[in-house]
C-alpha cells in the first residue's frame, strides 16, 4: 500500500493545495496501484507514509505548522528517505529560517539548507519554471525570497513570474520537490506528478490520458506567449 499524506490542511491549505494530494492519488488509482490518501489534522500524530504533501498558509498557521512538525516524527522520516512535495509556505518551513509577521525570523525544520527572507514585494501571478527541459506551470502568491546554499539545487529556472528570486524556483533534493507554484501544481502538470509518483512507487508508470493533458497544453501556450 502506498500512503499519500497531506499534512495539516487546516493550516497549510490556503490555495487549493489539496489538489496536489488528489492528483497523485487519482493518477495512481487509475493505474491500478494500491494507494490511499490521508490527511493529518492538528491533533493527530504524523503517520508513516510514502509521500508527504505540504501546502501554503498564512503567517500564524505557518508558524504553528512548523512547531507541530518540529516535535513530530516528520523530520526523522524525511531524513530516512520519505518523499515530500512542498509548495509555498511548505517550501519555506523545510528550510533553516523563514520570515513571518513583518521581518521576524522564525526557525524552520532545517531539512534543507535554504533561508527565506521577506521579499521587497509580494509575488502574485502566473509562474512558469523550466525543469529538466520541461515547463512547469502554476500560480504563485507569497511574500518570500528564498536563497539556496551552494549545495542545494533549484527545482528549475524561472521563465515567467518570480519563484525564489526571479531567477530560480524551489529546490530539489533526492527525496524532496519544492516549488512556489502553489496548490494544484501537480494537478496541472501531469508529467511532473507522474515523475514524483514513479519515484514514490519505485517503478515505471504506464502512460494514461486525462483532462489535465489538455489543460497543461493550454497553460503552456498561454504562459510562453
Amino acid at each position: 500500500m502506498t500512503t499519500i499524506c497531506i499534512l495539516y490542511p487546516e493550516l497549510l491549505g490556503t490555495y487549493g493545495d489539496g489538489g496536489n494530494g488528489l492528483a497523485v492519488y487519482e493518477r495512481a488509482r487509475r493505474r491500478g496501484i494500491d494507494v490511499e490518501l490521508i490527511s493529518v489534522g492538528l491533533n493527530d500524530t504524523v503517520p508513516d507514509a510514502s509521500l508527504y504533501l505540504l501546502g501554503g498558509g498564512e503567517d500564524g498557521p505557518q508558524r504553528l505548522a512548523a512547531d507541530l512538525l518540529r516535535t513530530s516524527s516528520f523530520g526523522s522520516r524525511v531524513r530516512d528517505g520519505a518523499y515530500v512535495v512542498a509548495v509555498c509556505a511548505g517550501l519555506q518551513i523545510l528550510g533553516l529560517t523563514f520570515c513571518v509577521e513583518g521581518d521576524d525570523e522564525y526557525e524552520g525544520l532545517g531539512l534543507v539548507d535554504v533561508v527565506t527572507s521577506r521579499g521587497e514585494r509580494r509575488s502574485v501571478g502566473e509562474l512558469a519554471t523550466r525543469v529538466d527541459g520541461q515547463l512547469l506551470v502554476g500560480f504563485e502568491n507569497h511574500g518570500g525570497r528564498t536563497t539556496l546554499s551552494g549545495g542545494v539545487n533549484a527545482l528549475g529556472t524561472v521563465v515567467k513570474g518570480r519563484g525564489n528570486d526571479a531567477k530560480l524556483d524551489g529546490y530539489r533534493t533526492k527525496n524532496i520537490w519544492a516549488t512556489y507554484a502553489h496548490g494544484p501544481v501537480l494537478a496541472m502538470n501531469p508529467w511532473f506528478c507522474d515523475e514524483i509518483l514513479a519515484s514514490v512507487v519505485g517503478a515505471e508508470l504506464d502512460p494514461i490520458t486525462s483532462a489535465a493533458d489538455l489543460l497543461y497544453q493550454e497553460r503552456c501556450r498561454v504562459l510562453s506567449s
Binding site: G19, L22, A187, M188, S210, A211, A212, L214, L215, E218
Partner: peptide, 9 residues
Amino acid sequence: LDLATRLDY
C-alpha cells in the same frame, strides 16, 4: 479546462 481537470480528478 481547469474545471474539467478538477472534475476529472
